[in-house]
């Protein structure tokens, strides 16, 4: 499943970054890497833009970019 499929409050573990360069390096430098935990803090009403917590860093990204990140949802 992809990061953009998670809902508000959901958490997941990153499985793979599918993005191409230079987006991939950008995501990596923000801390999106295999095995890291992400949490969807918020998204806009139409799920256009996401506010993601990755290791205590808040990162905003779009649906298009979130789609490039494969995650496994953590069931609470």
């Amino acid at each position: 499943m992809r990061l953009n499929e998670l809902n508000m409050g959901d958490s997941g573990i990153i499985k793979k970054i599918h993005a191409k360069e230079p987006l991939k390096s950008k995501l990596l430098s923000m801390g999106f890497a295999r095995g890291e935990k992400v949490k969807v803090l918020k998204h806009t009403l139409a799920k256009n833009t996401f506010d993601i917590d990755i290791n205590g860093v808040n990162v905003a990204l779009r649906d298009e970019e979130a789609r490039e990140i494969e995650v496994e949802k953590i069931e609470n």
Binding site: L23, K26, L27, M30, T49, D51, V57, N58, V59, A60, L61, R62, E64, E65
Partner: peptide, 9 residues
């Protein structure tokens, strides 16, 4: 362009 932006504290 892709949109990836840190939201600072």
């Amino acid at each position: 362009e892709p949109f990836v932006m840190e939201l600072p504290k």
